[in-house]
């Protein structure tokens, strides 16, 4: 359950502990997000069935798992876009199911989230998309907003695209703009849903380093959902492998790579056969092809 905490992340934990005391929270905890005995289903299919998971403050945590296991769903549960059927989710020691709307919105201002498909606002151009949270939540002058937005766009290499509309961007560009937007409010917690999909190797390297640098320099806690075992290994302090509604394995990338479990080995080394089925639950193949349904 616990992850290896290297010296670097220990140092980081200390700085955030100082922040904690400033925030006058009586109990200082390394655990920023705690999920306990989570159950959630879609229709009759249980997506999570007794999932337990802890995300440490100041670390980069990766959530990995086969397609369709519910990684995106888990992010939506953590941010209370969905409500669990059973179990609790604590963020910074607060049970998020007890928050009212304005408290929830205040909590969400501490989150930055990169959606799987970018989710840029299609009626605003790139600049205004990134400026959107600033315009909604702050009273900064236009000059200052311009400064902040251009800095963030520069960080993702798209300062030149500021005047383009989202429809004119490629998938990878859209996601980089979305990343700039997620960072623009300087959140405490950055959540990335599949940040590495659709990026060319160059932008991939830049983004990976950006994620790591922001995490370390700004003391952010990062949660990355990804299939990309190789990239995750380079950034994550700690990974959780989710399968069949539970955490199947956890640990630092190296620990996972060396793990003996069939499931972990199958996933980390990309083998088709093993405990994780490549196929979504279905009736027998032969039966369905040759059976009466075929007509």
């Amino acid at each position: 359950m616990l992850c290896y905490a290297g010296p670097a992340s220990l140092a980081r934990a200390q700085t955030s502990a100082e922040e904690q005391t400033r925030n006058t929270v009586n109990e200082i905890s390394d655990n920023l997000i705690e999920i306990h005995d989570l159950k959630f289903s879609r229709g009759h299919r249980a997506i999570f069935d007794g999932l337990n998971l802890v995300i440490k403050r100041g670390q980069v945590t990766a959530l990995m798992g086969p397609s369709g296991t519910g990684k995106t769903t888990l992010l939506r549960l953590i941010t209370r876009q969905l409500i669990p059927e059973h179990g609790t989710i604590h963020v910074d020691g607060v049970d998020i199911s007890t928050l009212n709307m304005s408290e929830l919105y205040r909590l969400r201002q501490r989150f930055g989230m990169l959606f799987q498909n970018g989710a840029l606002l299609t009626d605003l151009n790139v600049f205004e998309n990134v400026a959107f949270p600033l315009r909604e939540h702050t009273k900064l002058t236009n000059r200052l907003i311009r400064h902040v937005v251009l800095t963030k766009l520069h960080a993702v290499g798209l300062r030149g695209a500021a005047d383009m509309m989202p429809a004119e961007l490629s998938g990878g560009m859209a996601r980089r703009v979305a990343l700039a937007r997620a960072m623009v409010m300087d959140p405490d917690i950055l959540i990335y849903d599949e940040p590495f999909v659709g990026l060319d190797p160059i932008s991939m390297g830049v983004i990976v380093r950006l994620v790591r640098r922001m995490n370390d320099a700004l003391g952010i806690t990062s949660v990355i959902v990804s299939h990309d075992v190789a990239e995750v290994s380079t950034v994550a302090d700690c990974s959780f492998l989710i399968s069949h509604g539970k955490v199947a394995a956890s640990g630092s990338p190296d620990e996972l790579r060396l793990a003996k479990s069939d499931l972990v080995r199958q996933f980390m080394h990309g083998m088709a056969d093993g405990p994780v089925a490549f196929h979504f639950d279905a009736p027998g193949y032969e039966e369905q092809l040759l059976g009466r349904d075929a007509e």
């Binding site: 939506r76 941010t79 876009q81 919105y105 205040r106 969400r108 201002q109 989150f111 989230m113 959606f115 799987q116 498909n117 989710a119 840029l120 606002l121 299609t122 959107f132 949270p133 909604e136 939540h137 937007r181 409010m185």
Partner: peptide, 18 residues
């Protein structure tokens, strides 16, 4: 409807905008 289908409304909620 399209804003909803493309997660734009969820994204706003995540940015604490109703």
């Amino acid at each position: 409807g399209l804003m909803k289908a493309t997660d734009q409304l969820s994204a706003m909620e995540m940015m604490a905008v109703n």
